[in-house]
């Protein structure tokens, strides 16, 4: 049996009335892989994750998921849609979008309940994921009262409660304090060690050595312009600079100003 989870062939996508978001993406993702998608803003990273999650569909080309063609009408059938949702979970970049229920507990429960998990089992899962992500004290809180870091952890918990085979993360560490970034990276690494497939869209070059075995770089032409191991990508500094992925960093050492490229 093939271990290919996603296969993208010449995928094109454009938002209505806007410029194209993806222009001919080819990609193969296998079970248990840790993949990072990097690229400057507006290169199509979030669009790719939404395509992989079956939320939008290519205008040209095709996406195959678990051996089946991912099409809009395949998501209309509730059983087929649920089968897919049990296997793939997306953590959105903006946690406020993902946390739409009146309390944290209900937000975590939402996914499993929609997918037909029994209420007792849902209750058990809530406590389990709250333990893993250290958010037990937040369960009765209202999402709008939480800090950004807490919201992000609750958003991850809401997907973890579904226990999917594939996790899609959209900028999971953006705008967070160092400790929360550490927790999220540890979570991603642990999930992969448990056999989960991880696909992360990120700008955080410091993290990709840990959260990825394979890195795809998206360019301004909205397609993959390079793919390779984290080391091979990060060592090609002229390529990173050309694609707006590094910047000049100015800081002080022993009272002397020091300027260099900001890289891990």
């Amino acid at each position: 049996m093939s271990d290919i989870i996603f296969e993208l062939q010449d995928v094109h996508y454009a938002y209505p009335g806007k410029f194209p978001a993806l222009c001919g993406v080819d990609m193969t993702i296998r079970s248990g892989e840790k993949i990072a998608i990097i690229g400057a803003n507006g290169t199509g990273k979030s669009t790719l994750l939404q395509l992989l999650d079956g939320l939008i569909f290519p205008h040209h080309g095709q996406v195959t998921a678990f051996g089946e063609l991912l099409r809009e009408n395949s998501q209309v059938d509730e059983k087929a849609a649920h089968r897919f949702r049990r296997r793939v979970g997306l953590v959105f970049q903006n946690a406020d979008i993902q946390l739409f229920c009146p309390s944290v507990r209900e937000d975590i429960a939402f996914g499993p309940l929609q997918l037909g998990v029994a209420e007792e089992e849902v209750g058990r899962r809530i406590l389990e994921v709250a333990q893993v992500l250290d958010i037990r004290h937040l369960l009765e809180r209202v999402p709008h009262q939480l800090s950004i870091g807490e919201k992000r952890r609750v958003a991850i918990a809401s997907v973890l409660a579904i226990d999917p085979d594939v996790y899609l993360f959209d900028e999971p560490t953006a705008g967070l304090d160092p400790l929360t970034v550490r927790h999220i990276i540890d979570f991603i690494v642990n999930a992969n060690q448990r056999g989960k497939t991880i696909i992360t869209a990120t700008h955080d070059l410091h993290a990709i050595g840990e959260i990825a075995d394979m890195v795809y770089v998206f360019g301004q032409n909205k397609r993959i312009i390079m793919g390779g191991t984290p080391d091979s990508i990060l060592n090609d500094r002229s390529f990173l600079e050309m694609n707006n992925l590094v910047h000049i960093h100015r800081h002080h050492h022993d009272g002397r100003e020091h300027v260099h490229q900001h890289l891990p």
Partner: peptide, 17 residues
């Protein structure tokens, strides 16, 4: 989209505790 992503198909099921 976030609702669809977590299995919503038009008939919500909510927690009763």
């Amino acid at each position: 989209m976030a609702m669809l992503s977590r299995g919503y198909t038009g008939e919500p099921r909510l927690l009763r505790v």
